[in-house]
């Protein structure tokens, strides 16, 4: 499947999303009036400082916020279906199958007590009617798709036996095996070193073009955004301050905060031609 044109169908639509947290002094807003749409096969980058509400936005899409301490209002529409207000069991069926999540720290995302294979098969069989044998086959295929060598051996290993970069790719295999429509990647490369970062980003890009999956990419690194995103939303203090197409945003930032963010990039010396300049010549 190839990515469709910018006017393609909207997979995920978020509008008027407000999250407040209940404190002793009353309700404290965390994010207010967030709205964006995710189109098929496109990557939407959500960028901002730490504490700007990026992760809360992604947790509220998955309905993972604690309802006893937080209050969520607004509409989250996945392929024409309203998610806000669904029952727990119904949301559970959507999580992992239609919306998948990749977390920042792969070491904490797996249970240390079970092998990769056990956890993989559990995920597959929760959402499908496949037999154990079929599930193993699907798991092996998915692991091979993310370029992991020796998939069979890998299934028997425990999470602590793998490196961070490998685990992150296993997590992507988990997320992608059921071909979800939306993939939420919350700082997917922050804890990885540079070579692994490149591999994981290439993999995400391939998933996006091959399966037409829409990716909501959350990052504070403008380098990652510049490499991956098609559209960008900039968040500050729980609000989206600017939304634009990626080249437009880097060339003509409108909001003061966006300009500040772009200025905060570490430049490799002025006398030294940076990588982008070298490519431009």
């Amino acid at each position: 499947m190839s990515p469709l044109s910018p006017g393609a169908e909207r997979v995920l639509e978020v509008s008027g999303l407000n999250v407040t947290v209940k404190t002793a002094e009353g309700r404290l807003p965390i994010i207010s009036n967030i709205g964006f749409e995710l189109k098929r096969g496109r990557v939407l980058g959500l960028v901002g400082e730490s504490g700007s509400g990026k992760s809360v936005t992604c947790l509220s899409i998955l309905q993972l916020l604690d309802p006893t301490t937080t209050c969520m209002e607004g509409s989250i529409c996945l392929q024409g279906r309203e998610l806000n207000g669904l029952k727990k069991e119904e949301v559970r069926r959507i999580r992992g199958k239609e919306i998948a999540l990749i977390m920042q720290n792969p070491m904490n995302a797996f249970s240390p007590l079970f092998t990769i294979g056990d956890q993989f098969i559990e995920t597959i069989r929760t959402h499908t009617l496949l037999t154990k044998k079929q599930a193993i086959e699907l798991a092996l295929n998915s692991l091979q798709e993310v370029n992991l060598p020796d998939a069979f051996e890998l299934m028997r290993k425990y999470p602590f036996q793998l490196s961070g970069g490998m685990l992150q790719r296993v997590m992507i295999a988990f997320a992608m095996c059921l071909r979800p429509a939306v993939l939420i990647a919350d700082e997917p490369t922050t804890s990885l070193d540079m070579n692994n970062q490149m591999q994981v980003l290439c993999l995400l890009r391939r998933i996006c073009t091959e399966y037409g999956t829409s990716i909501l990419l959350i990052s504070h690194d403008l380098g990652v955004i510049a490499e991956m995103a098609d559209d960008v939303a900039v968040m500050q203090h729980g609000r989206i301050v600017e939304k634009a197409e990626v080249c437009e945003l880097f060339d003509h930032p409108q909001h003061v905060y966006t300009k500040e963010l772009l200025d905060a990039r570490i430049q490799i010396g002025n006398n030294q031609p940076s990588k982008s300049l070298m490519r431009a010549q």
């Binding site: 490149m198 690194d221 403008l222 380098g223 510049a226 490499e227 880097f250 490519r279 431009a280």
Partner: peptide, 30 residues
């Protein structure tokens, strides 16, 4: 200032995985 010109394979690998600063010069093809 000479670092980026070095030919050593580990340096080259490192320089190649530097993310570009502008979306126009992406190193990950679409």
């Amino acid at each position: 200032s000479q670092f980026f010109q070095l030919e050593h394979p580990s340096v080259r690998k490192m320089v190649e995985s530097v993310l570009s600063e502008h979306p126009r010069y992406r190193s990950i093809p679409k």
